[in-house]
Design a protein around this nucleic acid. Structure first.
Lengths: 212, 212, 212, 212
DNA sequence: AATGAATGAGGATTCATTCAT
DNA sequence: AATGAATGAATCCTCATTCAT
């Protein structure tokens, strides 16, 4: 497992990934424009030339880095979705809980959102790709659960059925807070999540006359 | 009113503001690092040197630009807050409506959020300042309305009273969506807002037993 | 004598001198190229524009500054020379003592030498002028005293009569040391001067057979 | 031996030295502040970027340039010192003759002194280093010879034994003259040196009553 | 006389990219 | 595959100089 025991061939096969991992760290630290490929190389334990052997330009490094670090997230989402079962409110809770899991504990997911917001203008295709591969499936699963819950009489026929984003938005807010304040403004995440669910489940339940 | 008729003194008084307005546009277009002060100068109709006559460094231009474009928002929030009246649900709606107004229609507010997320690491003081001057007062007003509403029996004693952010989070999500997709994924804002309020008001009302 | 009592006219008459005094300080601190006229202005209590009212260019400021601060030195030398009297060795001692007085105690003379060495390439005329107005008269007086001393039998017919510089060179070395080490390598000046005179007077006196 | 036949590695090993040689020429011509690294690069046959590949800043280029051009002088002094022999007056003459050799014929030594005088304020460490590596050893050797000569009865017990600088100061003056007047005021160096030695040897010899 | 806003050429420094080895 | 020397365009910032007031 340590360097010496690795065959040269294995090392080679891992190079691109190591470079992209290093790139993630540097891009997180400085942002796209202020990151120097030389620093990425140093962190990856290679030289600048090696990066250019594997990637055409800095833009490509960034683009592939996002792809690289997002892959586990995709996989996790996909395998998670198949586990949904039980009452719809439980499924809803599980789905949103999954999102909090990413948001609250996964640095990669958080920083990816920052990248998309910060550099989206320069990489519109990347934003589109991320949306289609991650957010859209998630939103669709959520929509299905809500619709099924309404059909089953568990949920009210709320207009939020057309905007599932409304349902999980507190998790996104928590993410944004994190991106803004880092460690500086701590939030009690568990209590926050509880408050979210309390409000949500009450909002979705009951005869709830639409109130204006 | 055109350049030649303006006195030198009048022009001088306006220069910094003109430069900061131009800076806003260029920083929006390219981000902090990729913006060239020379382009800012060109857009402002002055030369590089003039910018450095008024501002010490590029960082200062950025910092003061944020201050400059945020001032109207501060003022608007302050004067808006004094107009709150009526039933608490109406006040709540007005408060959140104000936020949607910024988010949905005000490019400056949106892009300021992008700046804070993208460059917050480089300008932590700026993030802190923006929070204290804009978000914190807003959150406090919201908290007051919720508490008063609960005291008056209009709202449930929801745990969300401790996390007013949960209450307005859909507006932030809408903002993030905008930052990510710009014009590419249109959302029917009015319907979105209605969905938000429907869910919220139902969540806050009724005897609503906390449901897990 | 203090500012308020000065008439405006008097103040005006003194402006150029005040500017040149300030210029001396700044040029001493930073050297010619690294000195900013703006700092000179600030130190003189005027604005950049005022400097350009009195002087055409930065080069002229420098040139006139040297002239300005050297004037008292010229005057002193001229009036000093008329006081020479007594035995020739006393006159010689007085002349060289005068030089030590400048070198050891007069910051202006020291720094002027630095300017001439450092910027002589850019201001050859200035070097020439300083030589002709200060060093040449001094050397000539020295030569006269030596020649008269030889004629009177007080001194040997040393070949140094043709190179009076040899005679006072320790004073120049002291100056150079000062320019190099400032306060960092203190020399006991009085003892140094005594050593100089001891060696010099012995070298000039006696039947002293030229020894190789 | 010409560029094309040199291997890349060989060229690389020589690059820093070539750059520093070019830097010497440009710094001599313009002084520190007025020298553009781009001109240094051009003279060295490389581009700006190459200089920054080898040296961090302009200051470092200057500092290392001084080190670089001084090395041969150090070496020469060191090997020269070991050759001293014969009567002490001969040794003294040889030592001072060595100094004249540098001063009168070696442009590098002359211009280094100019650099130290002109830029010493900006590079105090450099002045200190040069003093310790070159002037101090020289002065020490001189002091030893003088003391030994006094002990042997060859020299008078002159107070100049405590200030060896007095003994070689005419060489420094010659150097300063050169820095000031370049080719414009020729001095017959051989005659100057003879005058120096005549005065010096007479000053050191004989029963020489201290004369005031 | 004096101000100080404005200019713009100039120079230090950075860094993505190339390519000979 | 990998290196790292070399390039040069790009950009921040400075400051002598000008000139309207």
């Amino acid at each position: 497992m340590d360097a010496p025991t690795r065959t040269r061939a294995r090392r080679k096969a891992e190079r691109p990934g190591e470079i992209l991992d290093a790139a993630f760290e540097e891009f997180v630290r400085n942002g796209y424009a202020a990151t120097r490929l030389e620093d990425v190389a140093k962190l990856a334990g290679v030289t600048k030339g090696t990066i250019y052997f594997y990637f055409e330009t800095k833009e490509r490094v960034f683009d592939e880095m996002i792809r690289h670090v997002s892959r586990p997230v995709f996989d996790e989402l996909n395998s998670f979705v198949t586990t949904l079962e039980g009452p719809f409110r439980a499924r809803l809770r599980a789905l949103i809980g999954f999102l909090y899991g990413r948001v609250a504990r996964d640095r990669v997911s958080r920083e990816t959102l920052r990248f998309l917001i910060a550099e989206g203008g320069r990489f519109p295709d990347l934003v589109e790709r991320q949306y289609q591969e991650f957010m859209e499936p998630f939103v669709e699963r959520l929509r299905e659960v809500v619709e099924a819950g309404i059909a089953a009489g568990e949920f009210r026929a709320t207009p939020a059925r057309n905007f599932p984003e409304v349902i999980f938005s507190p998790a996104i807010l928590l993410d944004v807070w994190w991106l803004l304040f880092d460690e500086r403004r701590k939030i009690d995440i568990d209590a926050f999540v509880d408050a979210h669910f309390d409000l949500l489940m009450n909002g979705l339940s009951g005869a709830g006359t639409p109130i204006t």
